[in-house]
Computed example of a mutant assay.
Amino acid sequence: MPINLSKGQKIDLTKTNPGLSKITVGLGWDTNKYDGGGEFDLDVSVFCTNGAGKVASDKDFIFFNNPQNENGSVIHSGDNRTGAGDGDDEQIKVDLQSVPATTEKIAFTITIYEADTRNQNFGQVSNAYVRIVNDATNEELIRFDLGEDFSIETGVVVGELYRHGAEWKFSAIGSGYRDGLAGLVRDYGLQA
């Protein structure tokens, strides 16, 4: 039975699951009926940051066109352009023991592709969640349902894995961005 988190809650991941090393971070969502006629494409992006929350280079910004960090310890499974069907829409594989020591946080975000052009926002998205699965046992350890707190936002920081001494923890963030991917990229220290 997974532990269900609330916004702002933090939880030990490796301390309460000794030996945990390889995980899948699954993110999923549904889109409400949309009468604009355009596709509704949500994208997961990952920022591998230092303790100050900044990436060292473009290689630490993982998304469908840059599917892994430099040493392959964080890997994006690929772009799901429709979000159709049950289960995870996009997944990130993380080998916790191989994450470079310079990476202190791994932030998971969801943005809407071409949101401004298509006049789309997270008010039209429902059932968004993130979950962490132990790859060795296929057991779902943690789940965070984002709820319906967003209206005009086009990007969301869902949560982050972070180091606490020798252990990894997870923080359920659920923070919206009105300027989507451009705002996230800027705030995590890259040029938009």
Rank of each mutant, 00 (worst) to 15 (best):
W29R: 00
N4P: 04
K105M: 10
P18A: 02
T82K: 02
E104T: 12
F63G: 04
K54L: 15
V25W: 01
T16Q: 14
K93R: 12
V156I: 15
N121F: 06
G28Y: 01
N66W: 08
L161G: 03
T154W: 04
M1W: 12
T111Y: 05
V185N: 00
T117S: 13
G189A: 09
K7L: 07
V130D: 05
G147V: 11
D30R: 13
Q68W: 04
S45Y: 09
E160R: 15
D58C: 00
V158R: 03
V156P: 07
T24A: 09
G51K: 15
Q191Y: 11
E153M: 09
D187H: 07
G36E: 07
A182K: 14
L13R: 02
L190Y: 07
V133K: 11
D12W: 13
T109Q: 05
E114W: 01
S171T: 04
Y113I: 02
R186W: 05
P2G: 01
A166G: 12
Q97D: 15
D30I: 03
E160Q: 15
D95F: 04
V74Y: 02
K10E: 15
S98L: 14
R131A: 12
V99R: 07
I142F: 10
G28E: 01
E90V: 08
A128F: 06
Q9S: 12
H76N: 08
G176T: 02
G36K: 04
E90P: 06
A56D: 13
Q68R: 14
I11A: 04
Q68I: 01
R81L: 10
V185T: 12
V158A: 11
I106Y: 01
N127K: 14
G26I: 00
R143T: 15
S77E: 12
G176E: 00
K7W: 06
E140V: 13
V25T: 02
